[in-house]
Design a protein around this nucleic acid. Structure first.
Lengths: 402, 402
DNA sequence: ACTAATTAATAAAATATATTATTAACTCAT
DNA sequence: ATGAGTTAATAATATATTTTATTAATTAGT
């Protein structure tokens, strides 16, 4: 019975499912002694011992020797073997892609951030994407067959289960995950970007005990991810979290989804970009006025840079958007009563410029009894959030931990 | 080892937890044969046989004899013993209380609907409530000690775990559940009304396979309940679902929560009541004009009655509110990607008068890809929804099935 | 430095659970 | 109505898991 616990056909097998539980524990909690695992899993020490021995011989687990003591005989501690396998992640945003790799233990060993890449809805663009991924993976010191799977983040509607992406790379009958799989020769899971980021923050964030959290991906668009009772929430087809298209405003701005009044039209990077260029057109001055008057395109990144340099117009617009975002977050607090809300994505770089108006709007618009439960934080992972999430999530999917 | 599987101290006990699983199966799926249970639970037939024999001798399960066949030897089928115990539920709304009892199998054996009762935030009001409950329970043919527990629904912020109610009956240091327990001499669990109704609809509704649903309790206020991945969602302190206080409108109407712009100020029974009386003041005519002009109070129930009689003003206002509600529901669809949305509460009596504008607003305001996943239905349970939910939920809590 | 107390790991015995074989109860086609 | 095929229930056997006892390794106090 030296078959891997990963195999699906062994689902009804107690020993395989206990092994999965052990792996889950080690994934979440790092290193454990046999006694701790035994207590945590309500399973006897001899049984755990047997399983750990097997997991070691299968290469998934390492014995890290004696641990610093707390009185009494020192236990051996066991943890995941970092070299048991690697997981790659790709995060595709509007104009950039980022890529990375984590080892079996979840430590990021490679990262390439914000490589320019313009996504188009064509097979050629997909080919070019996959060749970028391939050359990234080939350059690694890790042998290619040690990469167990690849996670790919996309924005918009993504059905992670079926592998279809409906908003980007919707190219005919085959699911996108299969198309990529054919090109990179490795199991591929696609995922909605906000959801992957949420999982990354959930797994790597400081508050690891948090069981109910909302992650807000405020980038060009606005999406959220939901962790409920410690599990990533998908919804019926994996389309949950499309908060950006909540009918929030009574404005006349047409959203990229075709509807009007969407939250995204007032609260998102694209909204900031629109408002900023509108103000410039109206003759408001900014440190970007020069570039603008020369007929050059102002990017969202330009605006975020200007903000860091305390550009008054940028500050003003961020504050205004932050206020509306705080109002929108208040709604989420009333709806979810979460323990934690994490703000991530491009706009999170605005730090206190955006957090301050958000906090004040929360005080104004949410039920105090509910919102006093809720901590609000900035993402710890920053620009690595998407890739970290892609990697962590693809590891969990591959190991069957979701 | 003839101790009840209900006892907490037996949590680490495999046989007790398997018994709980069997009970859970029987609660959800009705009657089962031993072979079916064995397959469903991935546990061997002899083990299940042993446990079923024990559960029968403990009085929880009955052998219902041979089942209609499907080829081969006919199996004995087993199900919950209806008389193993009873669960009482009380639903307290603005002006009425309803009460009921279910047997162990979940069948409602007693129901008293809409008894007039005005809730006030005083000990006297609580005393009077409890004496109503006591006289209801004493009049039953069921011996008092067979009532295993009592569930009480309240609107507003209710922490079901701690037993505190913060919006109503917030009477000093002791939790409300304890105060009621002292007066009715039976274990008491309090719950938010919308959440209890959600659970009732989830357990008794037609789509029993649905794992992701949202229930909308549109009564005097507006609350929702959330079922995610087959589990009732509470949030950190059990305050989730306060959609009525989502900052939705840019109006100047002060909500009962003290804030302005709350969804409830435009989408709720109280909103309909306000709009209706405003129109009457403005001189619009309705079949309620006479009553109004005589200086009598128009109730929400009056308006709903008028609607059934096709009162034009009532129809007009319901349609307008339905449109806004549909917009709000669109937001929920985008956020949750649910499989099912059930509309319940007082306003559900408006049936197609309100469903039509809701449906058309959903088409207008939600992402089609997401909303085509979602069925929208009226509550099947009607006025029994609250009590059913209270009973079903208190059974699940008592049996440890949540 | 030695002993009592504490925790870990292992071994032996006892218990629980699953597998397999056997018997029972039924349907359906001939 | 008879026997082949099917499913259920039970009995016997084999396997897995836990419990208890034992040994090992360590700390803290004297």
């Amino acid at each position: 019975m030296n078959t891997s616990f990963l195999q699906k056909s062994y689902e009804g097998n107690r020993s395989a499912s206990l092994k999965k539980e052990i792996i889950r524990l080690l994934v979440i909690g790092g290193n454990y002694s046999i006694t701790d695992i035994s207590k945590e899993m309500n399973t006897s020490v001899p049984t755990i011992t047997k399983l750990i021995v097997e997991l070691i011989s299968e290469g998934y687990v390492l014995d890290f020797g004696k641990q610093g003591t707390n009185g009494g005989r020192r236990p051996n501690v066991y943890g995941l073997n970092p070299d048991a396998g690697y997981f790659a992640g790709v995060d595709i945003s509007k104009d950039f892609i980022s890529m990375g790799v984590i080892n079996f233990k979840g430590e990021m060993t490679e990262f390439v951030g914000n490589r320019e890449f313009v996504m188009e809805n064509t097979i050629e663009s997909l080919d070019s994407l996959c060749s970028i991924i391939n050359s990234f993976l080939n350059k690694l010191s890790i042998p290619r067959d040690k990469i167990l799977s690849l996670g790919v983040n996309l924005s918009g509607r993504v059905n992670s289960e079926s592998g279809y992406s409906y908003s980007f790379y919707f190219l005919g009958e085959k699911p996108l995950s299969m198309l990529i799989e054919e090109r990179v020769d490795c199991p591929v899971y696609i995922e909605n970007d906000s959801r992957a980021m949420t999982y990354g923050e959930f797994m790597m964030g400081s508050d690891s005990h948090v069981k109910n959290m909302i992650f807000i991906n405020a980038s060009w668009g606005l999406g959220i991810g939901i962790i409920m009772d410690g599990r990533l929430y998908y919804g019926k087809s994996g389309f949950s979290g499309e908060y950006g298209h909540f009918p929030f405003f009574d404005n006349e701005i047409i959203c990229r989804c075709g509807k009007r009044g969407c939250l995204e039209t007032g609260v998102s990077g694209s909204a900031i970009h629109r408002m900023f260029t509108e103000r410039l057109k109206e003759g408001r001055v900014s440190m970007l006025s020069g570039k603008f008057n020369n007929g050059l395109e102002i990017t969202l990144e330009d605006i975020m840079d200007a903000l860091q340099k305390e550009d008054v117009l940028a500050i003003e617009i961020i504050e205004c958007v932050g206020n509306e975002m705080g109002k929108a977050i208040s709604g989420l607090i009333n709806l979810f009563n979460p323990e934690l809300i994490v703000l991530g994505g491009t706009l999170a770089a605005a730090k206190e410029y955006i957090m301050l108006p958000i906090r004040s709007a929360i005080n104004k618009y949410s039920l105090i009894l509910v919102s006093k439960d809720t901590k609000l934080k900035l993402s710890r992972l920053g620009e690595k959030c998407g890739v970290t999430g892609a990697c962590m999530l693809v590891r969990s999917k591959t190991l069957g931990l979701l």
